[in-house]
């Protein structure tokens, strides 16, 4: 049996979620090859080669891979799948975008966002915003799976797999990259941060979100998140969104500030190790899952907490 794992990377570096996806592939079993499709992505391929348990890295260079164009990755991966029994991709915006295309071309029903591998055809995945866990058995000959990174422990970087190169499929494709606005930040990336500070609607404005949430996050060395309500209201950008339709995080410490705790938000953070909730409404549902709750005015509590840490 052999598994092809799609690496998530920035060309210059490998994203941590790749090591978690390899861990899920190991639980599935068989030989694991990691595909690094990028543009000037030699550094990412070299990092992938160090991941433990990897048979080989396949490094493919192409301008269309610089921004992970779905049509280009599909054209690359689908012919490769004749040599593999499964395709595993991280359930990131890239993996979610491209994997179903590959699945459809292979006439396979994708198993999305798995949180556990039971055996080579059976997986657990959350449904209904994590309000239920479904165990599904796939009858397809090949499996196409996206992996929720927070549910798997990253493999070590103690290996030394060979790196092969392969040719990029010929374009042009019917979609083309135009531009990107990626927020530059020195803060840890939300999805992999060890600590996360999130703000909700109670922050009441973008100015106050920045004024109260960011200093605490910086003091804790934390990534910054937000509830959907705060994003919808324009207090925080969408890529901060934690929840069913945003990012799923499971840090060591999650601090929820002015977040009431709608089920859609809890879906994105309830597997955090320690949850702290600060909210003026003592009946807020967030307190039902918080390890430590502090009832009161966030505009007084948060600055005090920031200064005393």
């Amino acid at each position: 049996m052999a598994v092809l794992v799609l690496a998530e990377h920035s060309n210059a570096a490998l994203n941590d979620v790749t090591a978690k996806t390899v861990a899920a592939a190991q639980a599935f079993g068989g030989d694991i090859d990691v595909l690094v499709a990028g543009h000037n992505a030699g550094a990412a391929a070299a990092e992938a080669a160090k991941l433990s348990g990897v048979r080989k890295v396949i490094h493919v260079e192409g301008a269309d891979f610089a921004n992970a164009l779905a049509e280009a990755i599909e054209a690359l991966v689908v012919p490769m799948m004749s040599s593999y029994d499964a395709f595993f991709a991280p359930a990131t915006s890239i993996g979610k975008n491209v994997s179903p295309r590959i699945a459809a071309k292979l006439d396979v029903m994708q198993v999305s966002e798995i949180t556990k591998v039971i055996d080579a055809s059976t997986f657990e995945r959350p449904i209904y915003a994590g309000n239920a866990i479904m165990t599904v058995k796939s009858s397809d000959a090949k499996k196409v799976v996206t992996v929720r990174g927070t549910a798997f422990k990253a493999v070590e970087s103690s290996g030394s797999a060979p790196v092969e190169t392969a040719a990029a499929p010929a374009g042009p494709f019917k979609a083309a990259f135009v531009s990107a606005e990626i927020a530059k930040s020195d803060r840890p990336e939300l999805a992999s941060a060890k600590r996360v500070v999130s703000g909700g609607r109670a922050l009441a404005s973008a100015e106050q979100f920045n004024q109260y949430i960011l200093p605490l996050a910086d003091k804790l060395g934390a990534g910054v998140g937000a509830s959907r309500a705060a994003v919808d209201a324009g207090y925080a950008p969408n890529d901060y969104q934690v929840g069913q339709t945003g990012k799923v995080v499971a840090p060591e410490l999650y601090v929820a500030i002015g977040i009431s705790g709608a089920i859609q938000h809890l879906a994105g953070m309830k597997d955090s190790k320690i949850i702290v909730a600060i909210n003026k409404d003592e009946e807020a549902p967030i307190f039902q899952i918080a390890d430590y709750g502090l009832v009161g005015d966030l505009f007084k509590i948060v600055p005090e907490l920031t200064s005393k840490l």
């Binding site: 915006s93 890239i94 019917k174 083309a176 990259f177 990107a180 990626i182 927020a183 969408n238 990012k247």
Partner: peptide
């Protein structure tokens, strides 16, 4: 314009 991890990306589709 697409919501991607880390920000926004714009594609041109035929």
């Amino acid at each position: 314009t697409r919501e991607v991890d880390g920000g926004l990306e714009t594609l041109a589709l035929q």
